[in-house]
């Protein structure tokens, strides 16, 4: 069986933990409990009729006080950059983080997730518009 380490990276309260919970256990909660350190989960997926075990590292979100430590990303096969659509700053954080990660562990594939689609009305980000 193939195993892959995948990391959840982004600013605080963007919905990293919520995404993992939804993906692994199909649950969702409105209650915000910030992640301290790292929370690890596992999800088995079928890829081209091959079973892959995803080891999901849900890292604490970055804020002014605490930068994400790059050592947690070592050995990751890919990562999600999670952005909260209602807060433009989280997109900027994501970009900065992406650059930092690539600098540390190389050009590893990543997916940028624009979260909180249901609150699209309040988004500070619009399609086709550069955030800056």
């Amino acid at each position: 069986m193939i195993q892959k380490k995948i990391c959840m990276v982004g600013a605080f309260a963007t919905g990293k933990t919520s995404l993992v919970a939804r993906f692994v256990r199909s649950i969702y909660s409105d209650v915000y409990q910030t992640t301290v350190g790292v929370k690890i989960d596992k999800k088995l997926v079928n890829l081209d009729s091959q079973e892959v075990s995803l080891i999901l590292w849900d890292l604490y979100g970055e804020d002014e006080l605490q930068k994400v430590r790059m050592s947690y990303l070592r050995g990751a096969s890919g990562y999600f950059l999670v952005v909260d659509g209602t807060r433009r700053s989280t997109f900027e954080t994501a970009l900065a983080l992406q650059a930092k990660v690539e600098q540390t562990i190389g050009a590893v594939p990543f997916i940028l997730v624009l979260n909180k689609l249901d609150l699209q009305a309040d988004w500070e980000l619009e399609e086709g518009r550069s955030p800056r």
Binding site: Q3, K5, I40, K42, S53, I55, W57, R74, G75, S77
Partner: peptide
């Protein structure tokens, strides 16, 4: 490098939680 579990053994009678998770943690 990846902190992925390569192999795991447990003493007889010892049941383990997901060793993958333990190794990552």
């Amino acid at each position: 490098e990846t902190s992925l579990l390569l192999h795991h053994v447990a003493a007889p009678g010892v049941e383990t939680l997901d060793a993958d998770l333990v190794s990552a943690m």
